[in-house]
């Protein structure tokens, strides 16, 4: 097992090298002069030369790539052109916001999705089944930005019960330790801040959870229907076990594998920064950060962030693969 994990980690290296080449090339794939496209039409030749020098664009590609890699390995992700801040520092602020939102959305999606899927399967063709599967169909079909805007309109504008944007009300004091606000507020026992943060995360969390929740519910249902027909479920009934245990232990553990695959992929996508959701709700996360960087042609940010997101994505996939073994002992790693 440990050997497998180490080998998988080693296999990440070529993947990450590939990603680094692609992100590195990004800046050179811009048609024309990258320096000009970053600074705009009105920049003077002297300014352009200065930026080229700063970004090292005058060196050969190989030297540039070598510098790019060695910087990253030292934890230096470069400097933002616009804010002149270290990108590593800025990401350290943004990443927890995205991770917190993604985790919140994912937990919501898993709990509700799996539960709805299981009940739909056990009560196949019941009103609950029809209702939740119709709901799931809507969930995967609704454009998320539209849903987000509608929720803001309903809960923030009409009823005024939930805040439309941000992570926390300005003025609420919170001592940050991990930069995960929900955790920080709990750690410091700051209930006022906890409530405020929870209110802020609710709308973007639900918006973000909608699609994964719908997919998980449908996947759980079909997988459970398959498993409930199996011989070992009949055996479990014949042994006189309680229905609840048969469904949630014997059946669900078997049915969970395809669901786990979906969860892994969806979670990876969410962590990549939900650009639309974060933008709509002004969530100060990675998605919005990249979005603003693209608009401002701040290429160093785009490069570094893509690299980080890719690394997170492959890491989540590895985690999913390891979890497979827990759910199905027949899986062998070699």
């Amino acid at each position: 097992m440990l050997k497998y994990i180490l080998r998988r980690l080693a296999m990440l290296i070529p993947v990450l090298i590939g990603v680094s080449i692609i992100t590195f090339s990004l800046i050179h794939l811009i048609p024309g002069d990258p320096a000009r496209s970053m600074l705009g039409e009105k920049a003077s030749e002297a300014q352009l030369e200065l930026l080229r020098e700063e970004l090292g664009l005058n060196d050969s590609y190989l030297v540039q790539y070598g510098r790019f890699i060695s910087n990253i390995l030292r934890g230096d992700l470069g400097t933002s052109i616009q804010s002149k801040e270290s990108i590593a520092y800025e990401l350290a602020q943004k990443l927890p916001a995205t991770i917190e939102l993604s985790l919140f959305a994912m937990i919501l999606a898993i709990v509700v999705g799996v539960l709805a899927g299981v009940i739909s399967a056990v009560k196949q063709y019941s009103w609950f089944d029809h209702l939740s599967m119709t709901g799931a169909l809507f969930g995967v079909s609704l454009p998320i930005f539209w849903l987000g805007l509608m929720m803001i309109w309903l809960f923030s504008v009409q009823f005024n019960i939930l805040p439309p944007s941000g992570r926390m009300t300005t003025g609420v004091h919170l001592e940050t330790i991990t930069n995960f606000y929900l955790i920080d507020s709990l750690l410091t026992g700051n209930w006022e801040a906890f409530k405020d943060v929870l209110q802020h995360i609710l709308l973007p969390g639900i918006a973000l959870a909608t699609i994964p929740m719908a997919i998980i519910a449908r996947m759980t249902r079909s997988s459970m229907l398959e498993v409930m027909r199996q011989d070992y479920i009949r055996t479990a009934y014949a042994k006189g076990l309680k229905r609840f245990i048969i469904i949630f232990q014997h059946a669900l553990k078997n049915a969970f594998l395809p669901v786990l695959t979906v969860i892994g992929l969806q979670f990876g996508t969410l962590l990549g920064g939900a650009v639309l959701t974060e933008t709509i709700f002004s969530w100060p996360g990675v998605g919005r950060y990249v979005y603003l960087a693209v608009l401002g042609r701040d290429y160093p940010i785009v490069q570094s962030t893509i690299l980080i997101i890719a690394a997170i994505f492959v890491f989540i996939n590895l985690l999913t693969d390891i979890l497979y073994k827990y759910f199905d002992p027949r899986i062998k790693y070699n």
Binding site: D231, Y232, T235, D328, R330
Partner: peptide, 11 residues
């Protein structure tokens, strides 16, 4: 049951 290959829970 008839089929011991499928009558025990695999997980």
């Amino acid at each position: 049951f008839q089929d011991p290959m499928t009558s025990l829970n695999p997980v």
